[in-house]
Every structure is written in structure tokens, then in C-alpha cells.
Computed example of a mutant assay.
Amino acid sequence: MDRKLALVTGASAGIGAAFARILASHGYDLALTARRVERLDAIAEEVRLRYGVETLTVAADLSEPDAPGTILDHLTAHGRTVDCLINNAGYGLPGAYAETRWKEQAAFIQVMVTSPCELAHRVLAGMQQRKFGRIVNVASLAGLVPAAAGHTLYAASKAFLIKFSQSLHLENVPEGVHVTALCPGFTWSEFHDVNGTRALASSSTPAWLWMGADEVAAAGYEAMEANRAVCVPGAPNKAISAIAKAIPDEWALALMASQGGRFRKV
């Protein structure tokens, strides 16, 4: 195949669907994966008709340990290799840590940390060999500011993805492989609907802090092509990140406590 293939996880809505559209607009064939087959098929058909690219869909649950291998085996069976990986799949797990079940937290870690790392590991050698590759790990502003109470592993998982991306970026500068951590703040998507925090997020967060999924994906694509290790889209988010770095940790933690956990939802 002449066209390169982009694999997008969590592609059925939000930032993942937006990435699918922008990658197709730049000539990438697409492999889209998520749990909701109908939504995946609809997006795949939309971009195929609009941009004339080939689309493959793979229904998979990344909380299952064998999911990354199953996804890539499916692509291999169709004679395709991954040139661009968008690790976007994710969700929030509300509640205090002790009030959740470990089974839920273990599945969360599998989706948010283990699966992205495994997918990157599996596709990286081929990218290096071909001297071309693109990896975007969709992290969050939450990984750049002090953690808040609740959603206990969310900010931790996003901070992990940021550090992982930075190291992978440095390792692959001479290999033609671009690695970027995309760190959006509040984004209009189904994220808050799924974890049951839509009403709270909408009522407690000013409109100027929100960005559209298309804006976020466009910023991520630009950063990916420019090979920037970390991308924080939007001026307000950049300011929040800069302030968090500048003030002492104890001040930042006190600020997070005073905000009642607002930033835990991004």
C-alpha cells in the first residue's frame, strides 16, 4: 500500500474520532478501535466516503490484556503495519480510592497505562526500521498539575504517559519517529457523560476553559508533525500548566483542595 496507516484507539467519539478525521484528511488510511462497533463503523464509513481512504475497524476492549495483540494481529492479517499510533482510549473512575474495587482500578491501569505502552512497544521496531513513525499519547493537563482528591489514578496515569512520551521522544529523535504527549484540559466530548460528572463539570467550570475535540486533535496533529514532546493546547491550559510549575508544591496542593477537585475531571 502506498498510503500510511494510522491506528486510533478510543476512536468512536470525542478526540479519537476527531483524530480519525484529521488523519484521513492528510491521506492516512485508518484502523479504528473501540468497544462500540456501530459507532466505529459509522465513523469509518464517513471518512472513507469523504476522503477516499481505506478504513479498518477492530472492536476491542483495552481492559483485556490480550487486546493490543489481537488488534495488531487483525491488521497484520489484512497486510497492514502501523505508521501512526494515536493512544487515545481512556475514561475516568470517580470516587475515593478506598471506596472503589481493586478490579476496577486494575482494569483502569490496563486501559490507561499498560495498553498504550504495549501498543507503542509492538509497533516501534517497525517504525524505526522504516525510519518513519508517529506516536501520540493522549494525556491530560491533569498530569501536569498537582493531583486532586478523587479519580485517584487518573492524574497519575496521565503523568506517567507524559514522562513515558518524553523518554520515548528522546530515544527516537534519530530514528525518524515522532512522539508527542497531548495534554488537553476540559474538552467537549462524552468523557464526562460516561463517568457521570457532566452536570458537575458543566456547572463548576467556566465556558472559556473548554475546548472542542476538533481543536484538540488539530493541535495534537500539528505537534506530532513538528515532533514536540509535549503539547498543551489552548492559552488557558498553557497558563495553568505554567503556574503549576512556578508555585511551590504546598501552595499548589492547597489550591487544588480549595477548588473542590475541579481539575480531577479533565
Score class of each variant (00 low, 15 high):
L75R: 03
V82T: 04
N88R: 09
T81S: 13
F108T: 03
G90Q: 06
R101Q: 14
G79N: 02
T100H: 05
H74S: 02
T114G: 08
A106K: 08
P68D: 03
A96G: 15
A96Q: 15
T76V: 10
L93I: 13
M112A: 04
E104Y: 09
G95N: 14
G90V: 02
S115F: 01
T70M: 12
F108Y: 09
V82C: 01
G69D: 13
A98T: 13
G90T: 08
A67V: 04
Q105K: 14
R101P: 10
G90N: 04
D83H: 15
I86L: 14
T114F: 10
C117G: 15
H74T: 08
A77I: 06
T100S: 03
E99R: 13
A98N: 14
L93H: 10
L75D: 01
T81C: 05
N87C: 12
A106W: 08
V113I: 09
T100R: 08
R80M: 10
V113L: 07
G69Y: 04
G95M: 13
A67G: 10
M112T: 04
A106E: 06
H78R: 07
T100A: 07
P68A: 04
H74Y: 02
C117V: 15
Y97I: 15
A96H: 15
G95S: 11
V111W: 01
G79I: 00
V82Y: 03
I109V: 14
G90M: 06
E99D: 15
Y97L: 14
A67F: 09
L72W: 00
H78I: 04
A89H: 03
F108W: 05
I86R: 12
G95I: 07
Q105C: 03
Q110L: 05
G92T: 10
A77V: 11
T114L: 14
F108G: 00
R101T: 05
T81K: 02
L85R: 07
N87V: 05
I71P: 01
G90L: 07
L93D: 09
Y91N: 08
P94Q: 14
A89V: 00
E104I: 08
R80Y: 09
D83R: 14
A67M: 08
I71K: 00
K103F: 10
C84E: 03
H78Q: 14
A106H: 09
A96I: 14
T114K: 07
C117W: 12
T81I: 13
E104P: 07
Q110G: 02
Q105Y: 11
Q105G: 00
L85W: 07
G79K: 01
N87A: 08
E99M: 10
S115T: 04
Y91K: 13
T76I: 11
A67R: 06
A96F: 14
I86D: 10
P68R: 04
I71L: 00
C117R: 10
Y97H: 15
G92N: 12
V113H: 06
